[in-house]
Amino acid sequence: MASQGTKRSYEQMETDGERQNATEIRASVGKMIDGIGRFYIQMCTELKLSDYEGRLIQNSLTIERMVLSAFDERRNKYLEEHPSAGKDPKKTGGPIYKRVDRKWMRELVLYDKEEIRRIWRQANNGDDATAGLTHMMIWHSNLNDTTYQRTRALVRTGMDPRMCSLMQGSTLPRRSGAAGAAVKGVGTMVMELIRMIKRGINDRNFWRGENGRKTRSAYERMCNILKGKFQTAAQRAMMDQVRESRNPGNAEIEDLIFLARSALILRGSVAHKSCLPACVYGPAVASGYDFEKEGYSLVGIDPFKLLQNSQVYSLIRPNENPAHKSQLVWMACNSAAFEDLRVLSFIRGTKVSPRGKLSTRGVQIASNENMDAMESSTLELRSRYWAIRTRSGGNTNQQRASAGQISVQPAFSVQRNLPFDKPTIMAAFTGNTEGRTSDMRAEIIRMMEGAKPEEMSFQGRGVFELSDERAANPIVPSFDMSNEGSYFFGDNAEEYDN
């Protein structure tokens, strides 16, 4: 993207840094990872977990959730003011799984939030270390993106479920800051804005008074975040219109849905970061690795190297396929839920299948599930090659597409044709070009129609051997075009429920 120079890199967003050079960025990201790792080690000690239990991804998720809940100030305040039966607002906890007599047992633990905050700050040299908290939120978000298709949420806001490739980060909490905003897809931002506008339509006082002023500035800020994701002048001009509207209503909703559809071809720039579970960072720190000293990046080879040398386990339900569970977590670790499966298959070195073909449910185990038949197995999170994460949407291309997802959002900077089903997408653009945004709409449609099938995206960008740390010898991959490109292809993934 041309304006790259004016933006802070995501590592800076990730670490609240002012302008830093590459070495400083690597050190501050490393410091953040160190903090998460030290916190995780301490929690495993508190909970008396064995090494194996500490490497269980379900335990990692519970521990991450506990610290996120302990620092969720708004919710904590709300819980104190609106006490609900049987919930102690000062405590947080969740299921911890232990191996007892050759069987997995679930144990519900409860801790004072104050105590968890103390352990977290102690692991982070006394700081609140917001960057580390956001990092864990993005890992949870990436896992949700890989596990669930947001059909219901899309339909509720009037969008087409086939636009799911635009929904990265749709389950990120509001408090995820600049680093969170960077990884949100165009569809996620559109959905947040539509929800806001709908509230304004239904509630006369939404934009009024002292609160209304705050609401208005939040609305304009979200519009600017979305505008910054678009790469064409016409899309940005249309966002200006939406932002400046005196009284946002149905016309703005129409414009936003139009823009979301246009992003299936004229893709937005959305950041991709490899955020790993805390149970990967903990053992690495415990083994003596100093992330701050060595430096770390979320968008280069580092996460690949770390996963190459990590042992992570997962509980497996009786009829689940461990290899499929591994694929789910591998995609989440690489922030690749909406990437082209052919690119992923090449990088991973084994075939990556669409969601609907995987015999696996989510990673988390519900409290009512029976533990008797639970097994555990090693997650295979290694890769054959590594590639640089991208934040450009890439230019655009036609490809055989599917009944489910009709476009992709690249996660890796790797040369390819970008699949999208042009006739299906263009069919949504018939007729409606009147109104105050008509010239911009016409211009956007013209650009979409001009998108050429034979153009290559990320020209000359390749993948790298894991021994090639400096990215000196790019390998331009070859793809098996007979395979499906979309992950949520004609899909039956479970729906995400809060």
Rank of each mutant, 00 (worst) to 15 (best):
G17A: 12
E115G: 13
R208W: 04
G435N: 08
L341H: 03
E252I: 04
Y10G: 01
R400Q: 09
D88C: 15
E339I: 03
L418E: 00
T130K: 15
W120H: 09
R156T: 05
I265E: 00
K31S: 06
G349L: 13
G35P: 03
S377Q: 00
A85Q: 14
K198S: 13
F71G: 05
F412S: 02
N224W: 09
M371Y: 02
A233P: 15
K227D: 07
G17R: 03
R174M: 10
G5K: 00
S165T: 13
E434N: 10
T360N: 09
M167Q: 08
W330T: 03
L344M: 14
V329A: 08
M374V: 13
D421A: 15
Y40I: 02
E320V: 06
L264H: 10
A278Q: 03
G169Y: 05
G249H: 07
D112E: 14
W120A: 10
E115Y: 05
W120S: 06
L56M: 14
K184C: 06
S402M: 03
D290G: 13
G435S: 06
F291E: 04
N247Y: 12
C44Y: 05
L256V: 13
C279F: 11
L298F: 12
A181N: 09
F258M: 09
N321W: 05
D480V: 13
R441L: 07
K91G: 01
Q327V: 11
V329T: 06
V408E: 11
D203T: 04
E53Q: 11
E252L: 03
S482E: 04
N202W: 14
A284E: 01
G462N: 11
A366G: 14
R199L: 05
I138E: 02
A234M: 05
A493V: 11
I36Y: 02
G490S: 06
N368C: 10
A411Q: 00
I253S: 06
F488A: 01
I388C: 07
N334T: 09
S141L: 03
K325Y: 05
N250W: 12
F206P: 03
R175L: 01
E244Y: 02
G394H: 11
Y10E: 07
G356P: 06
R317M: 07
R348Y: 05
M66A: 11
M137A: 04
D16H: 08
Y111S: 12
T430N: 14
L466H: 15
A451C: 00
A182L: 05
E443I: 03
L166N: 01
S326W: 06
Y40V: 04
G94V: 08
A323T: 08
A387N: 04
F429M: 10
L193D: 00
S314A: 14
P322V: 11
Q235S: 03
G169R: 02
N124K: 08
Q241T: 05
F39L: 03
P318T: 10
R441H: 15
G228M: 13
S486F: 12
M239A: 15
E465M: 14
V463T: 07
C333T: 09
E115A: 11
E11P: 01
S326D: 11
F412M: 15
L193W: 05
M331S: 07
V299K: 11
Q399E: 01
Q241A: 04
A123L: 09
K103Y: 01
R361A: 01
A427R: 03
H324T: 06
